Simulated assay, not measured.
Amino acid sequence: MMKNDKNTARWAGFFYLLNVIFSVLYMEYIPSQIMVSGDAEGTLTKLLSNETLFRIGILVGIAGHLSFILLPLTLYKLLNQVNKRIAILMVALALISVPVSFSFILDQINFLDLLKDYDLGLITRDNLATSARSLYRSLMNGFFLNQVYWGLWLFPFGLLAFKSGFLPRFLGISLMLGCITYMVDIGGAILIKDYYDHVSTDLLIIPAAIGEIGMCLWLLIFGTKQNIRF
């Protein structure tokens, strides 16, 4: 049984690593190469000069969302022995985000149709630029919305890790703290008009980053270890 747990843990670590890589590319790197904040024409110019990257980004997004389906399901197989109800909650909170995430992909695929119309002269450059700006504004807002679920699933995951006895407790604590800071960030951004002028999101995500990257590497390298005391 212990060997099976180690194998399951390493598969979970593998899916976690894929998700981290795909997420960084899809949500950070690729948009940074295309989006020009507040500049519709600038965004369109960069998009047209990086159209292949834009198309690759769609595939990367699909792969990332698929890896995020496999991750909680594999973690459930590993952690349901700790507490089945909490494990079910963990999976539910994670998977709720997937249909929302795929709706962003649909918006990007629809934009490909607009590019075809532009090549055929069916829409003007100004209209295409406005659509490009709207696409990325919607994409960023969608990422923000999904932080609700990307944050909430970390609490049951962290609690299960803390209670498991075969995963590091400090990583479980980091995951639970990450959930709290995600919720603080979301609530603050909605309630306070100039929130980001006073609060650094980079600092708030530190607990979640430590918990998620640490857990990813632990699962991938060590799998499980019995009677962990830290």
Rank of each mutant, 00 (worst) to 15 (best):
D39K: 00
D39W: 01
L44I: 00
K46W: 00
S49R: 10
S49F: 07
S49Q: 14
E51P: 15
T52V: 15
R55W: 10
I58M: 13
A63N: 10
A63K: 06
A63W: 06
L66C: 12
I69T: 08
L70R: 07
L71T: 13
P72L: 08
P72W: 11
L73M: 08
L75C: 14
Y76I: 03
K77I: 04
K77M: 11
L79W: 08
V82R: 03
I86D: 07
A87R: 03
I88E: 05
L89W: 13
V91F: 11
I96H: 04
P99I: 12
F102Y: 05
I105K: 01
I105D: 00
L112A: 01
Y118P: 04
D119P: 11
G121T: 00
G121V: 00
L122M: 04
L122W: 03
R125W: 04
D126Y: 06
D126R: 07
D126V: 06
A132S: 04
A132K: 00
A132I: 01
R133C: 05
S134W: 05
S134L: 11
Y136V: 05
R137W: 11
L139Y: 09
M140W: 03
M140Y: 07
N141A: 12
L145F: 15
L145R: 14
N146E: 09
N146W: 15
W150P: 14
G151D: 12
W153N: 12
F155H: 10
P156E: 15
P156I: 15
L159C: 12
A161N: 12
